[in-house]
Design a binder for these strands. Structure first.
Lengths: 181, 181
DNA sequence: CAATCTGATTGCATTTTGCAATCAGTTGCA
DNA sequence: TGCAACTGATTGCAAAATGCAATCAGATTG
């Protein structure tokens, strides 16, 4: 940690000005992207939701550290929850919302080459098949949720997250019916 | 490190079967993707080329460790160099070649949000503008280079790597002419 | 007023990382 | 023949990151 990064208080190495290197310096660790994944696809906004909801079992000190770091890097913001004076709501910034295409490509690649489970990869499959139009719809929904942007969705259309959720539930239900398959 | 990963000798945690998580377990570190970037975009094939050529200055023990790991994960293969009995040539596998879209998206995102330098981001810009057709052409070229696949390129067309290199050289030349801009 | 829930923080042992130095075998050249 | 340079690594060591368990104080609920 040596050079000041942008105008924020976070410092990162800046080993080089290569975009791939700089991106790696932002999420080249085992947890940052997992947290963002849970916020983007799981809709989690609170510390406890992220702590207990994650399949991978992040430790609370690491979660606290990464949330702080992601805020300093400009990927998250934090606000008070009106319903509970100690509760904080974390929001994605535009910078984080535009990670959706990267998440989609990562998911698509992992689905092909790594030992994914069916119920957890159905979402990646849907996202891949939907392509950039679906990614854009999803990003618009996230802007509505997290940035208060006006919703562009025609009323009555299911949200992308609902579609992903429905596909997941369907696989889980099918697997429960036919446990041997 | 607990569970055996695929059929290889490498073991990784398998914290969950989520494709994004598994992808992160493959390159959720600061060096693996840098090495693959230098092989894909820089055309590097030897230990020394990777060691001395990288802008970020990887240490030799880390390079050795990551090359071994990437081989065990199925992203690289190693072969003897006929010209030198101690020299090894590293090749990308299909698994690694299909990272091109991820690299392109990472580069595009980093170019927008991080303090990249112009000469290092021109390639990301070109790759973004070229879109999937250019990515596919590039992947075909890599298959030809690394897997011995027949070349699909019409004779006389510049390779994608040549195009990227030319764009980089142009920026460097322009900046040398007008150092104040 | 006690139990529970909130978002953390602390201490500590283990693991991973990164730098510097070093290694033995191979090659090129005088 | 001899020796320097180059090959792909390996080793030792200090520093940093990680992960677990315990703990915290304030807010809310029953």
């Amino acid at each position: 940690m040596q050079l000041v990064f942008l105008e924020s208080a976070v410092s990162i190495d800046r080993r080089s000005g290569c975009p791939i290197n700089l991106s790696l310096e932002v999420f080249g660790d085992r947890w940052s992207l997992i947290i963002l994944r849970d916020m983007i696809f799981g809709g989690r906004r609170h510390f406890r939701e992220l702590l207990n909801g994650s399949l991978e079992g992040i430790a609370s000190n690491i979660l606290a550290d990464r949330l702080k770091r992601l805020m300093e890097l400009g990927l998250l913001t934090k606000a008070d929850d009106p319903s509970h004076k100690q509760k904080a709501i974390y929001s994605l910034t535009e910078m984080a919302i535009t990670l959706v295409p990267i998440m989609a490509q990562l998911g698509a690649w992992g689905r092909v080459w790594l030992p994914v489970t069916e119920e957890l990869s159905i979402r990646a499959e849907l996202l891949e098949k939907g392509g950039p139009p679906l990614w854009n719809q999803f990003m618009d929904e996230l802007r509505h949720e997290h940035l208060g942007a006006p919703s562009k969705a025609p009323p009555g259309t299911p949200t992308v997250r609902q579609q992903l959720r429905a596909a997941y539930d369907e696989v889980v239900a099918r697997k429960a019916e036919m446990p041997s398959v």
